[in-house]
Simulated scan of single mutants.
Amino acid sequence: MYRFVGQARLEWWANHSTCLEMYDITVTVDAVGTLRATGRHASTLDTTQREGWDFLMEMAPYFSIAFLSEDRGGIVVRVIEAENGTLSLTEAPDWDGSANGTFDLT
């Protein structure tokens, strides 16, 4: 895949069998070697979705990206969200799937 413009889905997996959330995005991918892409959420996140997104981004900003019109998916990307809502995605092949988090249960 050298260039892709279209719909994709970011999936946040807790483990190999549990996907906690999926977010549809529009994305432009330029891939020569390592995948690099920019995108935006396909639709504005409501309050609940935004809270979930922010929580997952704080836990570990690593998502699996699935291209809806392609037979290719499961690429792990690190996501950075700019203040204007633009998403920058960079392939993260060395990510081991671990995340550190602290929960306040009070």
Rank of each mutant, 00 (worst) to 15 (best):
Met1Arg: 07
Met1Asp: 09
Tyr2Cys: 02
Arg3Cys: 08
Phe4His: 07
Gln7Thr: 04
Gln7Glu: 03
Ala8Gln: 01
Ala8His: 00
Arg9Val: 15
Leu10Phe: 00
Glu11Leu: 04
Glu11Met: 02
Asn15Glu: 13
Asn15Met: 10
His16Gln: 11
His16Pro: 14
His16Glu: 14
His16Thr: 12
Ser17Leu: 10
Thr18Glu: 08
Cys19Arg: 09
Leu20Gly: 09
Glu21Cys: 12
Glu21Gln: 13
Asp24Trp: 10
Thr26Val: 13
Val27Phe: 11
Thr28Asn: 09
Thr28Arg: 04
Val29Ile: 14
Asp30Asn: 14
Asp30Tyr: 14
Val32Met: 11
Gly33Met: 06
Gly33Ala: 09
Arg36His: 09
Ala37Gln: 03
Arg40Gln: 13
Arg40Glu: 12
His41Gly: 02
Ser43Ile: 09
Ser43Lys: 11
Thr44His: 06
Leu45Thr: 15
Leu45Gly: 14
Asp46His: 04
Asp46Gln: 03
Asp46Val: 02
Thr47Arg: 15
Thr48Pro: 04
Gln49Arg: 14
Gln49Cys: 15
Gln49His: 15
Glu51Val: 15
Glu51Gln: 15
Glu51Trp: 10
Gly52Arg: 03
Gly52Leu: 03
Trp53His: 10
Asp54His: 11
Phe55Leu: 15
Phe55Ile: 12
Phe55Met: 14
Leu56Tyr: 00
Leu56Cys: 04
Leu56Gln: 00
Met57Phe: 03
Met57Gly: 05
Glu58His: 10
Glu58Cys: 03
Glu58Val: 06
Met59Asp: 08
Ala60Asp: 02
Pro61Ser: 02
Tyr62Ile: 05
Phe63Asn: 05
Ser64Ile: 07
Ser64Pro: 07
Ile65Asn: 07
Ile65Arg: 01
Ile65Cys: 10
Ala66Asp: 14
Phe67Cys: 11
Phe67Asp: 10
Phe67Arg: 04
Ser69Phe: 02
Glu70Trp: 02
Glu70Asn: 01
Asp71Thr: 06
Asp71Trp: 07
Arg72Ala: 07
Arg72Ser: 04
Arg72Tyr: 08
Gly73Cys: 05
Gly74Asn: 08
Gly74Ser: 06
Ile75Leu: 05
Ile75His: 02
Val76Phe: 00
Val76Trp: 01
Val77Thr: 03
Val77Gly: 01
Arg78Ser: 06
Ile80Cys: 02
Ile80Gln: 05
Ile80Gly: 07
Glu81Leu: 09
Ala82Gln: 13
Gly85Tyr: 02
Thr86Leu: 08
Thr86Met: 12
Thr86Gln: 14
Thr86Ser: 10
Leu87Val: 01
Ser88Trp: 01
Leu89Ala: 08
Leu89His: 03
Leu89Thr: 05
Leu89Pro: 02
Thr90Pro: 04
Glu91Val: 00
Pro93His: 03
Asp94Arg: 12
Asp94Ala: 11
Asp94Val: 12
Asp94Thr: 14
Trp95Val: 15
Asp96Cys: 01
Gly97Ile: 03
Gly97Gln: 00
Ser98Ala: 03
Asn100Ser: 10
Asn100Pro: 13
Asn100Arg: 10
Gly101Arg: 04
Thr102His: 09
Phe103Gln: 07
